[in-house]
Design a protein around this nucleic acid. Structure first.
Lengths: 178, 178
DNA sequence: CGTTACATGTAACCGGTTACATGATTTG
DNA sequence: CAAATCATGTAACCGGTTACATGTAACG
């Protein structure tokens, strides 16, 4: 599991409220690790019990329940420990392969519309990533060590989207030319 | 969710016991959709309640509890219905990206060993897939419609492994040359 | 006769998803 | 002032993982 460590990393970058974390997991981080606000609040509660993080009513809370979470030394140590253990290799797991197999067994059906949808999706993603890369990494050389790692994350997404797009285009061509 | 439909597809290809299904999900199918025997038995029980599948004591059961599961008309209809609804697009979700981000925030640590491990893993996978492709799809032309779909599934894996391998090699080079 | 493979299951727990609830603040 | 956004939470359910349990069949 990584959600706890993803949240810890986010808090290390910047102390935040649960809501702010949830928004970041819907945007930038969310491209690579999605989480809903419920997951995040649950995880924050658990980590506070463990002493990895601490919280106080946020300075700008006013009459609201807004809390500011900050990473504690124990949390930083846990994060460092975790980064040094081997990471599980992610397996490919895509509903579409199950549908392809089902169609092969059923002997009927048409996936061309589905493939068009995917091609649009991956094309959009690739163009998002290209814009992010141009904005954050290509314009301002030389990059810090930290930025180079962030760039590697983005490149991972770019490689993945390119492969997905190429496969879908190839599959569509094969299913259309007959 | 797709496990139910993955199992249905497997039963459509060949009536089987839970144990046989579990073994197939550990081998060929498992490259694209992993499932443990507990998940499979749970799913078989649910689908039998729904009337999608039916079971009898297997012909070769002897004194064992071995059961043979067969797909029912309702199960086939459900599978056909499901293949025609849009498939959820799989998001990339890899622990390694979280570790990269954590290292960027912590400002220390070394992922080169991890990358070497990944390169070995993806190289092995690619060679497995190449062997499967040569055995099942490249030698015997022309392919049936069903075989062409199966080939597309395998190609999806090949595209994914190639992209993963290229990224890891590129990342290792970047992290080593300094 | 002991070990390995075959075969099916229960139990417990954690992660992920969805629906619902509640109230404060900001904005048009 | 109504609507959208900010902000946090409870509850229920399903999927996925791990540990444990039980017994038969095949093999050396």
């Amino acid at each position: 599991m990584s959600l706890a460590h993803a949240v810890l990393t986010s808090l290390l970058e910047k102390p935040s409220s649960g809501y702010e974390l949830a928004r970041r997991f819907d945007k930038s981080i969310g491209y690579f690790w999605h989480a809903t606000h419920q997951q995040i609040y649950r995880e924050l509660a658990r980590m506070e019990v463990k002493g990895w993080i601490a919280s106080d009513s946020a300075p700008d809370a006013g009459a609201t329940r807004k809390r500011l979470y900050q990473i504690q030394p124990q949390g930083r140590e846990e994060l460092a420990r975790w980064t040094h253990e081997p990471a599980a290799v992610t397996e490919l797991r895509d509903e579409l392969t199950v549908k392809l197999r089902a169609l092969a067994a059923l002997g009927e059906g048409d996936l061309r519309e589905e493939l068009h949808r995917r091609i649009r999706h991956h094309t959009q993603r690739l163009s998002d990533y290209a814009a992010m890369e141009a904005r954050d990494f290509l314009s301002r050389e030389p990059l810090s060590a930290s930025s180079r790692l962030q760039h590697l994350i983005l490149q991972k997404g770019i490689f993945f989207e390119k492969a997905s797009l190429q496969w879908a285009e190839n599959a569509l061509a094969l299913l259309t030319q007959r």
